[in-house]
Amino acid sequence: MDTLLFYVAFAFYAAGLFLSIATVVTRKDSFFRIAIISHGIGFVCHSVFLVVLGIERQHFPIMSLRESLYFFAWTVSLCFQISYWRYRFRALGLFSLPLVTILMLGTAFLKSYPAPPEILRSSWIYLHTTCLILAYGMFFITFMSSALYLFQQWQIKSRKPRILLERLPALLTMDEAFQNFLIAGFSFMTVGLLAGVLWAEKEWTQGWYQDPKVISTFVTWLIYLALLYLRLSAGWRGKRAALMSLAGFLSVLFTFIGARLFFEGLHSF
């Protein structure tokens, strides 16, 4: 049941991806409308898949790297759908859809973990990982918005607006998306981090803060704190904001994947 749902979701995501590429190639808007619907159906299947998986495994499916990738892909899909329906931010599809499809594809190559030890089964971990992964999905959108803002700004500045310009939302709309996803992502990250810290204080041995993943997560949080502060107080946008959110997102990627590859630590993923 769950594997079937996974394949269906994957198929719809892939269809959405190809249709959105077709939109760019053929410049026909009708393709994009089907793409967004296809992606929407994929998203629903994906959600049902996560629920079914959770019931089957008796825990919220966010305990292994594989499960967290499922959830991360789901988060990116969710953010893309929100940004489309809220801001008509179609160009994001060009970046989110491949990411979602690759993430889904990637999970197939990961070995499945045995049931997690009893100690990890705590509501803290659900709060901790769910919030952080939601935040990371939002930071992806934040980064893409700021990059596209920069691109659109460059296009208008060049004074030779081309076709793509028509397909990007207005500068201020992208700026709004950037800010809102940044605020939401930062809030989730803060809650996720707090949950992790409190949980570690209660359950874990001394020295949890020396874990490489914990350290890099804090660095990430500080980068986003700085970005948010500069955005709200000094009005950072355009080039500086794009560079900073690139730094933030690279830090997210390192935290999510790199820290685990290069160092041994408390986190299994």
Binding site: Q152, I156, P161, L165, A170, L171, L172
Partner: peptide
Amino acid sequence: LAERIFGQ
């Protein structure tokens, strides 16, 4: 152009 920049 104004709409490209400001949207609404």
